[in-house]
Simulated assay, not measured.
Amino acid sequence: MLLSDLHSACFEEDERWNEDAFSGLFATPGIMAWVIVVGEDPAGLLMLRQSADEAEILTLGVHPRYRRKNLAAQLLVAGCAALRARDVTTLFLEVSVRNDAAKALYLKHGFILCGRRKAYYPDGSDASVLSYDLTSVTR
């Protein structure tokens, strides 16, 4: 499956989602996903889950070959635009305290720190919980 293969390329082995994980997510309400393509290559993915007027980023990843080309930002902007069109007001996510690149991306785009989840990830690292007010800025 395209999404599980792409996710496997983007993440470390203990963080990868298999085909069953994606199938299970798509069987639940409110799931949206985007794939960004470079040439003919799937280069990144974004998956969101909406519930009423809130949403969360489930995963955002860019293939290592295509990192540092603004693709994650493009996915984020597209996802936020789609959520605004659905009258979603707040977007949340968890990001490892060890993932400096992802934290920088989210903070640059206006996310704010709103919490912490202890030992959230398989490696035992904490997660920073971030939120974004989709009503405050139009991109």
Rank of each mutant, 00 (worst) to 15 (best):
G79Q: 06
A52R: 05
A55D: 01
S51Y: 13
G61Y: 01
P29Y: 01
A43Q: 11
E54D: 11
G39C: 00
L75S: 09
P42K: 01
P29D: 08
R67M: 05
A33W: 00
A43W: 05
L46G: 10
E40S: 14
H63C: 12
E40I: 12
W34N: 02
T28N: 05
D41C: 10
V37D: 03
P42C: 04
G61W: 05
R65E: 08
A73S: 08
N18I: 03
W34P: 03
E15T: 03
R68K: 15
D53A: 05
P42H: 08
W34S: 05
L46M: 13
I36Q: 11
L71D: 10
G79H: 10
Q74R: 15
A78C: 09
N70F: 10
L75T: 07
E40R: 14
R16F: 02
G30V: 08
N70K: 15
D53E: 09
L46E: 07
G24E: 02
A73E: 13
L25F: 01
N70V: 03
E19K: 13
G44E: 12
E54C: 06
W17Y: 11
L46K: 11
V77R: 13
V37S: 08
T59K: 01
S23Y: 11
A43S: 12
D20L: 14
L76K: 09
G61V: 00
